[in-house]
Simulated scan of single mutants.
Amino acid sequence: MKYPDNIVELGTLLPDYMGFIFWDKSSRYFNGQIPELPKSIKKTGVFVNETVENIVQKVLQYDLQAVQLHGKESVAFCAELRKSLLKNIEIIKVFSILDTFDFAVLEPFELVCDYFLFDTKGKLPGGNGTTFDWKVLQQYPSSKPFFLSGGIGPEELEAVSEILKTNLPVHAIDVNSKFEIEPGLKNITLCNDAIHHIATIKQ
């Protein structure tokens, strides 16, 4: 999210999370003020290879409830960040997938992260607008809940529904570029439709 009026309008739909990108190379880079939002929405800071000190500073400045690590952060880095943050701040570690993935790399992260996020490997750390082969997730060996991300748009919602019906521990669906009018500006109608669609499947 990037624009105050759009942030407020989307907030009325009560998504579980709302993301703010603090990576200055992103077209969605956020450096404004976050308007007042319903308390149920977890404000999430997205960081790429940032320092622990800067992440903690942004968490305090913007009263974030979650941080999403979208770079090459190590297990040691996540552990240090966990010690530096309040216990109720969620840590979401992103892993990029294309056609295959070695799920063994996740195991050491399980103790230092609250959630994983699986995105599509592309030229940018995120927002590439393409999906990965979701069949790879059938090999997911963990009970750690994860976010499903990567090029999810209105056309993919039926396929997402099928994944939600499986035993995979999907915690949330992360949507971004295919629900935008321009980078950082969300199409409220499309977002509303997606939220209602996913809510119906979860019932």
Rank of each mutant, 00 (worst) to 15 (best):
G45W: 03
S177Q: 06
T189R: 13
V46G: 02
F101H: 06
A199T: 13
T200V: 13
A104F: 10
Y29K: 00
Q203G: 13
V136M: 14
G45K: 06
D99V: 01
C113R: 03
Q65V: 06
E162V: 07
L157A: 06
E50C: 02
I92S: 04
P125I: 01
F20V: 02
Y3D: 12
K87S: 13
S161M: 10
G127P: 05
I7P: 09
I92Q: 03
D5Y: 04
K178G: 08
D174P: 11
N187G: 08
G153S: 12
V52P: 01
A172I: 07
P38E: 07
Y3C: 05
T131K: 13
K135R: 15
F118R: 11
E90A: 15
L81K: 01
S149H: 12
E156L: 09
P35Y: 07
I55H: 02
H171Q: 13
R28S: 09
E158L: 10
A79I: 01
D5T: 12
E182F: 08
E107T: 12
F95K: 09
Q33G: 08
Q61S: 11
Y3N: 10
L190E: 15
L124R: 09
P4F: 04
L69Y: 00
E158G: 01
Q139W: 00
F132Q: 13
Y140W: 08
A79V: 02
V112A: 00
T51A: 00
T51C: 00
P169V: 06
Q68T: 05
N49E: 01
E155A: 13
V8T: 14
I152A: 05
S26T: 03
D5E: 14
L98W: 14
K2D: 11
F118W: 12
H171K: 15
R82G: 03
N176H: 05
G19M: 07
G150V: 05
L124K: 12
K2F: 08
V67H: 02
L137C: 08
I7Q: 10
E180S: 05
P125S: 02
P15L: 04
E158C: 01
D193I: 10
Y140D: 09
V75H: 02
T130R: 15
P108N: 01
L111N: 07
W23C: 00
V112E: 01
P108V: 03
I92P: 04
P154G: 10
G127D: 05
H196W: 09
F147L: 11
S96K: 15
D16F: 11
N54V: 01
G127F: 03
I173P: 10
Q61E: 15
F47P: 00
E9R: 11
F109K: 00
G153A: 11
E180T: 01
V59W: 01
P4W: 03
Y115Q: 03
T189A: 14
Q203P: 00
Q61R: 13
S40W: 01
I181E: 13
Q138E: 15
I188H: 11
P4Y: 05
V160Y: 08
K43E: 04
L117H: 11
K144N: 09
L137R: 09
P169A: 06
V67M: 02
F116V: 11
H196N: 14
V56P: 00
C191M: 15
A194C: 15
I91Q: 04
P145T: 04
T100H: 15
F20D: 07
L81H: 00
W23F: 12
S161F: 07
G153H: 10
L185N: 12
K25P: 00
Q33P: 00
